[in-house]
């Protein structure tokens, strides 16, 4: 396995040298393996948004460097521009960036900017629309006639159609209802399986990222607080609550059970895992 993203000692200070100076990202280093699903967690103002806008070169670091596939994205102008297409970024509430007359044209905007041929663009748009779970019938509709959830999917398809090696989602499910959340997350999971893309996902919902991500990166005040598998991170569940982050509901429950003296693993975060442990404990009791 090789690292596809390397973040090296990244710093970003806004409005440096003015009274509004604000350090958003403070010496962050980590790397992401090819094909990995990384969950990014932190409360508002922890530097998540600033960090992800560095990965595709939208923001220029005030210190440190970003390497994609071993090469600095700031090497020259072409590399910087190429970074936009190598790391696709889906912003929060991406539906507000739709602008074309038809869904097709909107999804084609990215691929067109890449200078692809008409035939290639068409193919990519069709593939993208499939990944986000929309019917091809919407392609000729105006994006503004769609429902909120459909608009979001079209906007995501617009980034997927660039077929980036890395795709970054900033709170993809914000504002959706539970059914919408669940099906969108399922689409993202299926997309990653099919394309082997590297996925980064920012989320406030620990329950969501915990089941999807291979590893979690927890940010606090612009620094890396924790980095590891969900299991490793939730070992420090108490620390998470200290820095104002909610732990998954099951983890919270198991922390409390541990306090009550029941020998459970507090790093548990799925219902099925929890059930297995509890039934085992109960069974153990019954046998004794």
């Amino acid at each position: 396995m090789s690292a596809i993203i390397e973040v090296k000692d990244l710093c970003h200070t806004y409005s440096a040298g003015t009274p509004f100076e604000h350090v958003a990202v403070d010496h962050i280093s980590f790397s992401v393996e090819k094909g990995e699903f990384l969950g990014l967690i932190g409360h508002t103002g922890s530097g998540k948004s600033t960090l992800i806008q560095h990965l595709n070169g939208l923001l220029q670091p005030t210190g440190g460097d970003i390497l994609l596939g071993g090469e600095s994205i700031w090497k020259d102008k072409q590399t910087t521009r190429a970074a936009r297409f190598r790391a696709g970024l889906v912003f929060q509430y991406p539906e507000y960036q739709l602008f074309e007359e038809t869904v097709f044209k909107d999804i084609a905007f990215g691929p067109k900017n890449m200078g692809l041929s008409e035939a290639e663009i068409r193919e990519r748009v069709l593939r993208a629309i499939g990944f986000v779970g929309l019917d091809e019938a919407v392609l000729e509709k105006s994006p503004f006639d769609l429902s909120g959830g459909q608009k979001r999917r079209v906007a995501i398809a617009g980034v997927i159609a660039m077929e980036p090696e890395i795709i970054i989602f900033d709170e993809p499910t914000a504002g959706l209802d539970p059914a919408g959340c669940a099906s969108l997350l399922e689409n993202i999971r299926a997309y990653q399986k099919a394309t082997q893309a590297t996925v980064l996902m920012v989320s406030h919902s620990m329950d969501d990222v915990a089941v999807l991500a291979d590893r979690l990166l927890v940010l606090n005040h612009g620094r890396v607080e924790m980095l590891g598998t969900p299991n490793e991170v939730f070992q420090n569940a108490t620390r998470l609550t200290e820095i104002g982050l909610a732990v998954p509901q099951i983890t919270a429950l198991f922390l409390r059970l541990q306090e009550l003296g029941i020998p459970v693993d507090p790093a548990t975060y799925t219902v099925s895992d929890a059930m297995r442990q509890l039934l085992l404990l109960k069974g153990g009791k019954a046998d004794a």
Binding site: D177, P178, A179, C181, A182, D207, P248, Q249, I250, L253, V271, S272, A274, M275, L278, L279, K282
Partner: peptide
């Protein structure tokens, strides 16, 4: 109705299905 149930409620529900 397209709603999700809190994970804790789901757990209790599942455990009860399993005979608790």
């Amino acid at each position: 109705a397209g709603l999700s149930v809190p994970a804790t409620t789901q757990l209790i529900y599942a455990l009860n299905e399993a005979g608790c």
